[in-house]
Computed example of a mutant assay.
Amino acid sequence: MIRHIVFFSAGSPENIGAVESGLRKLGRIPHSRLFEVSRNMKVDPIGDDVDVVVYAEFENEAALAAYKAHPLYSETTREVRPLRELRFSADVVAAPSTGETVKQ
Rank of each mutant, 00 (worst) to 15 (best):
V102L: 14
G99I: 09
V50W: 05
Q104E: 12
A56K: 03
P71C: 12
V52I: 04
A94T: 13
S21I: 01
G11I: 04
V43D: 08
L34E: 10
V93C: 06
L26D: 00
D48R: 14
A65Q: 15
T98E: 04
E20C: 02
G11H: 03
E59H: 12
N40G: 03
S32E: 03
N60E: 08
D49L: 08
V54R: 01
V43C: 07
H70I: 07
D49H: 12
E14L: 03
P82W: 09
H70E: 10
I46F: 12
V102S: 09
R84F: 01
S97R: 06
P82S: 07
I29Y: 02
T76R: 08
Q104H: 15
A65K: 15
V80R: 03
E57N: 10
G17Q: 03
A69F: 14
E57I: 12
V43N: 09
N15M: 05
A63F: 12
R84T: 07
V102A: 11
P96D: 14
D48G: 14
D51H: 08
V93R: 12
S9C: 05
A62Y: 08
E14A: 09
E36Y: 00
H4Q: 00
R81F: 10
V6N: 00
R78W: 06
R81T: 12
A65S: 15
A65P: 09
V37I: 02
T101I: 13
E14P: 01
G47W: 09
L64M: 12
E57P: 09
A62H: 13
G27L: 00
I46Q: 13
P82I: 06
M1I: 11
P30C: 07
P30N: 07
V102C: 08
Y73L: 10
L23G: 00
A95V: 11
R84Y: 00
P13M: 07
S97N: 10
V93P: 05
L34T: 10
K42V: 07
